[in-house]
Design a protein around this nucleic acid. Structure first.
Lengths: 234, 234
DNA sequence: TATTTTAGAACGATCGTTCGTTTTATTTGC
DNA sequence: GCAAATAAAACGAACGATCGTTCTAAAATA
């Protein structure tokens, strides 16, 4: 449909490789990271974060010991403490990045577009595609929110509400222009979020069924648009 | 609508108090529980499981120490080991029950009903109401699946697929009778599950917004039925 | 050689679990 | 009916393992 985003072009444009992400993390955390040479730091950071995401996704942050992480990443216990100052700090390091990326992507993708139908399609697609590219990050952020230190916990909840609010705003805009049916915009926003989350929380299920990310997005959009166009009921 | 279940009557009929649940757990686990007198066992079990659910929901199973649990429940460390043989066994004890309850309820609620519209409404309402009554159990089961021992992990995934299959079967039945629009029944089943799960995973959000469980169910049903009735698009 | 980075032994705290003891409840003997 | 004897249950100190974290010496880099 008009204005749609294809996953392949999305992936090419955002270019979120592990090394690039680690480079950005390093530059934003030069205070906390004790390593000075960027190339050394980025190489070790990538090994650490890749291993940490793998272990956290498998058994959870609390059950991952730093010895596990040292073994899995190939970086010694002592060396790891040059990249973070505590286990909680490691969580902050892993978590902090994904949030800024998703906001940047979501806002970029609908800026300058007026039609609510297209805004809705594009923001859902962008959210879905971002969670596909950064799946381990999204999964971690969702499952470990409880274990975040207080300030990060608060930010995580705000982030959940912020992205939901984006959808709600688009829906209410469409309604006030008479394009969308009247319906509870907040509940529909929540439903959209929950379906988006299901994609990265249950990847095992969709992978087994050979459902692609574009299949999933198209289903979601058909489902939602059918509801918003419906004028039969109340 | 016809055949709907009200939450208040549901709650009254299933009668799932903590003491009754613990009594059933005790009777099904007489092998593993070393306490002989039912009244003593049920009383302590209720204290232990109530505290364990509270702590697990707050900080996760892995981060809950048995000393935390002892303090919170008022049952000593040693005494607790008369009710389970290891921390993993405690997880099994907490998890095992909910599953049998939900299957029993869901199947009971649609047995003997033929109309797919009513079957769909009733199974969604029953699932939602069960998760409302047993919210801490459902939350735990979802968030801690990764930490289950292998056999329990497998059962948890099967359970997820089993309840989803119930929805898919109803949808496909309705489609083959020409009542529901043609659409991907498996993806719609997944979407229904994800919305049901959002209710017990994000209670904080819905509580803050004063959305009742019946509000939520009505929204879900309107959303889904609008899609299944729609004959405009493909 | 001077500086940066890594390695892994060592430390105190806390974990799950065990176990000998004390407390509580029930049965027995008269 | 009431001690004494026995069984059931609760208790919490103690154990070995493992946790996050620190620190110093060795290795790598320039």
């Amino acid at each position: 449909m008009d204005g749609d985003i294809r996953f392949s072009t999305f992936k090419r444009d955002v270019n979120l490789t592990m090394v690039e992400i680690c480079r950005e993390i390093f530059r934003n955390n030069s205070g906390g990271i004790k390593i000075q040479k960027e190339e050394v730091a980025v190489r070790s950071l990538a090994k650490i974060l890749e291993a940490a995401l793998r272990l956290c996704n498998r058994k959870g942050f609390a059950s991952m010991s730093l010895r596990d992480l040292s073994r899995e990443s190939g970086v010694s216990l002592g060396a790891m403490y040059s990249y973070f100052s505590s286990k909680d700090d490691l969580l902050r390091l892993m978590q902090g990045h994904g949030r800024s990326v998703i906001v940047r992507i979501l806002e970029g993708v609908i800026s300058g577009i007026d039609d609510p139908w297209i805004r809705l399609r594009r923001s859902i697609q962008a959210h879905l595609y971002a969670s596909e590219v950064l799946q381990p990050w999204f999964y971690l952020s969702y499952m470990e929110t409880r274990n975040f230190p207080a300030d990060e916990f608060k930010k995580a909840l705000e982030s959940e509400l912020y992205t939901e609010r984006m959808f709600v705003d688009i829906i209410m805009d469409g309604q006030s222009r008479g394009l969308f049916r009247p319906a509870d915009a907040e509940l529909l926003g929540s439903a959209i979020k929950s379906m988006l989350q299901d994609w990265y929380l249950k990847r095992w299920k969709y992978t087994a069924r050979k459902v692609s990310v574009e299949d999933y997005g198209n289903f979601m959009l058909g489902f939602i648009e059918s509801y918003l166009m419906d004028r039969e009921i109340s």
